[in-house]
Nucleic acid binder design. Sequence first.
DNA 1: CGGGGTGTTGACTCCAATCAAAGGTTGTGG
DNA 2: CCACAACCTTTGATTGGAGTCAACACCCCG
Lengths: 236, 236
Amino acid sequence: MSNHHSCLVKHFQSHARLDEQDIDLLSRLERSPESFGPEQDLWRAGDKPADELAVMSQGWAYSYVDHPDGKRTINDVYLPGDIIGLHEYALDSHQTSVKALEKSTICRFPHKHLETIFEASPKLTKMFFRVACLQQSILINRTLNTYHQAADHRIAHFVCEIHARLSRTNADLSNTFRLPLTQEHLGNILGLTSVHVSRTIGQLAEESMLFRQRNRITVPDLEALRHFTRFNRTHY
Amino acid sequence: MSNHHSCLVKHFQSHARLDEQDIDLLSRLERSPESFGPEQDLWRAGDKPADELAVMSQGWAYSYVDHPDGKRTINDVYLPGDIIGLHEYALDSHQTSVKALEKSTICRFPHKHLETIFEASPKLTKMFFRVACLQQSILINRTLNTYHQAADHRIAHFVCEIHARLSRTNADLSNTFRLPLTQEHLGNILGLTSVHVSRTIGQLAEESMLFRQRNRITVPDLEALRHFTRFNRTHY
DNA sequence: CGGGGTGTTGACTCCAATCAAAGGTTGTGG
DNA sequence: CCACAACCTTTGATTGGAGTCAACACCCCG
């Protein structure tokens, strides 16, 4: 087997060392690649049954729900190495839809594979538990720092979050990185309108906190931005 | 052993049947009861290490963070049978503080006990995974239905959530139940001021959607309230 | 060169926050 | 058993941040 492991393995290895056997077990989850175009759905909220998860192999995706008034709420963003749909493990129908943001590769696998792992490896079991709980922590952090806070705070916090999450599989991430989300997407994640996102990013740029050109974000002083949003790096 | 099981066991039994051995394993988590008075903290955000969880045996508690401007965000509410701090399993310091709302009994247990269960019982492992994921689903549902939504919607949704969660260990819950939260608490959960909560509850009462007297909530027509907030009962 | 999706800017509106004060309720001690 | 204090709730007046509506600018792509 090659030394060049999948993103999922890299993701898990950022939590703890894995032996050959665990790597092998993990890799089985990433064996049925499907290609998705931009705007293509992996599944839809309400779809039944919800007896499978997926690994984000390449690209970006997001989970969302559409409200009757036409608004969309984005619940989470998935990066390479992330597991999609973990939080729906206990449900029998999908809670949220999942859509690719760009050309992506995603590997579905059934719940059963997860349970096989639970039986085969207590170590991987612990790690899956860690990953699931960490995902919840990240969500909670985003909520806590986004809920009552002003728009500039929200945007800055989200940028810090994405930087931290990308750093897990990409240790030498610089202070400029790709973020393939429109301002409309950002608004749907953060509970703002795209208009207000535009104004607020403009304001943050004036203050040299962060710049956004097309799909790229540049943060001149990451530590300053983290301080501004009281971003706690240890919880990612 | 008595036939009268703890709330934790009841909670887990609402997910799947348990045999004697699993009940025994589970019960071990609830063996060191501590009594908490109202306003007493179980732990504080930032406390280190975060190597223990707790079972809510009796009473109500909530997890929260205080912001530098004096505002408080409440992240979750814990009911009898709930596990406290599950989402912090992957962290090495506490993300949120936890405070009892009223006189309560809480049993701490170390992470290690959880891992013992992972090794001893694949069935309980699956169930813990379910419980952790379901908690995340509930949080996501609350976020989705609360984030952009108007105040009346938020309050109604939260009331539906609590009713659903209480029903898990209390199958014959009627349409009036105890909710020992002040309007200030509700505001801190839902991202509103207590003033606005008061006004909105008044408005909901005018429309006969729900009534609140002291610590009690009465919902004349639960199905109507669920419909109003688009509350999906299957995800709790 | 269009043309569709995306981003920017301005004017106006509105929901909820804020500030402030007065009622209610509870529970504790005299 | 009453009185008072602390807390909680209600109500009113005012303010403000973000939404809405709308037009225009941009930019990549075909």
